[in-house]
Design a protein around this nucleic acid. Structure first.
Length: 125
DNA sequence: ACAATGACATAAG
DNA sequence: GCTTATGCCATTG
């Protein structure tokens, strides 16, 4: 898989995150079959233009905190967009991941994307 | 090819 | 819980 197609896969998957929910970088990468590519997910979103349709703001780190240092997509904007969707930040700027974390796409959708499943526990020998 | 740099994640102190 | 160090891997100089 080339890097460019991986970027597109990332954007497709991020676009599936429903409003009011969030996902972590590692989570996105893991669903695409690349558990160690969390930083690449960040880079793919960083590469997006400011007027993109991709809901880049619905991706935060695994602890539920905004970590962007990108001036094109500033942290205050990300927080604003999330709060407009109903995502709540606590006093320490954390999101309750146990409550707002996206459960991920259905296996059916992953198959449509021709992507490997996160945990193929059968079929192994 | 090498070194430095990230919108990350995990472990250790 | 926060800070520091290490691993990670595509991108950039």
């Amino acid at each position: 898989m080339s890097a460019a197609s991986f970027y597109e896969a990332i954007r497709r998957l991020v676009s599936m995150i429903p409003a009011g929910q969030v996902a972590s970088y590692g989570q996105i990468a893991a669903y695409l079959g690349h558990p160690r590519h969390a930083r690449i997910v960040g880079w793919a979103l960083h590469d997006l233009p400011g007027n993109t349709l991709v809901p880049w703001h619905r991706v935060v780190n695994i602890h539920g905190r905004i970590t962007t240092s990108c001036l094109t997509h500033p942290a205050n904007l990300q927080r604003l967009l999330l709060e407009e969707e109903g995502v709540v930040f606590d006093a320490d700027e954390y999101i309750d991941m146990n409550r707002f974390r996206w459960e991920g796409p259905s296996d059916e959708v992953l198959r449509e994307l021709m992507l490997p499943l996160p945990n193929p526990q059968d079929g192994e020998a």
